[in-house]
């Protein structure tokens, strides 16, 4: 088989591809398509959120204003920073900087864990305030700008349902991403990635950026509904 010569040059080339370039393109296209499916997956939730936010705007704004804006902002910054470290990791892999690659991957993991930690603090606060949907749910806020007009607690409960589902699903994706980077860091420390082959780093990076972008939408939609009043 004529491929066997090429395979000697690059052990990462799998049998069914003719050349490295083709394999790289296939992996990259596959990753982008996977992200498309992720967009649709989150799209269902965003759709539900937008429908109810339009239907019960005042109540959603009231519920939203109880979220911790400071922690949300910190988390946004943490995530954007982690995107930077991912980009640096890809660059390090591209240029063959072995140690830097492992370091940036570990840094990304640390930032990801920091995000989850802050999220945990926020979740704990919801439990304390009885803002977790279910039999113990309690909400007594007024509609922003209308202090004598109490918000409908049932609609507030829907807001928090969506809040937990959306941020929860986002957190699940973060945990998967952290696991992915832990695996890649382990492999990278053993020299698995070279300037000739670093597709897994690139694809994991794409995934991480996607998870970031989801947050970039979640943050204003959930935290900033009606903050200007």
């Amino acid at each position: 088989m004529s491929d066997s010569e090429v395979a000697v040059h690059n052990p990462a080339l799998r049998h069914h591809f003719a050349e490295v370039e083709q394999q790289r393109n296939a992996s990259s296209l596959g990753m982008w398509l996977f992200l498309v499916t992720e967009v649709m997956f989150f799209g269902g939730m965003f759709c539900a959120y937008l429908v109810y936010r339009t239907a019960h705007f005042g109540d959603f704004a009231a519920a939203s204003s109880t979220l911790d804006l400071k922690l949300g902002t910190i988390n946004t910054a943490v995530l954007i920073l982690s995107s930077l470290t991912v980009v640096m990791a890809v660059w390090a892999a591209q240029t063959g900087k072995q140690k830097a690659l492992v370091m940036y991957l570990l840094l990304t993991i640390v930032l990801g864990l920091a995000f989850l930690g802050v999220k945990g603090v926020e979740y704990a606060e919801k439990f304390e305030k009885h803002h977790v949907p279910g039999p113990t749910f309690h909400f007594a806020g007024a509609i922003p700008g209308h202090p004598d007009h109490p918000a409908d607690p049932r609609h507030a409960e829907m807001f928090f349902s969506l809040y937990f589902v959306m941020t929860g699903m986002h957190a699940v994706h973060m945990i998967i991403g952290i696991g992915l980077f832990a695996f890649l860091a382990f492999k990278a420390s053993r020299g698995a990635y070279t300037p000739a082959y670093f597709t897994p780093i690139e694809n994991a990076g794409l995934y991480w950026h996607f998870v970031d972008i989801i947050w970039i939408y979640l943050f204003p939609l959930l935290y900033l509904i009606d903050r200007h009043k």
Binding site: F41, G134, R154, V165, M169
Partner: peptide, 27 residues
């Protein structure tokens, strides 16, 4: 397919954790 996947997740969460997504009682 991802859309039906998340839809089913929402049904399951509403059923098990009593979140309010499709429940007319909560609006």
């Amino acid at each position: 397919t991802p859309v039906v996947a998340i839809t089913i997740v929402l049904v399951a969460l509403e059923r098990t954790l009593h979140l309010g997504i499709f429940d007319p009682k909560l609006g």
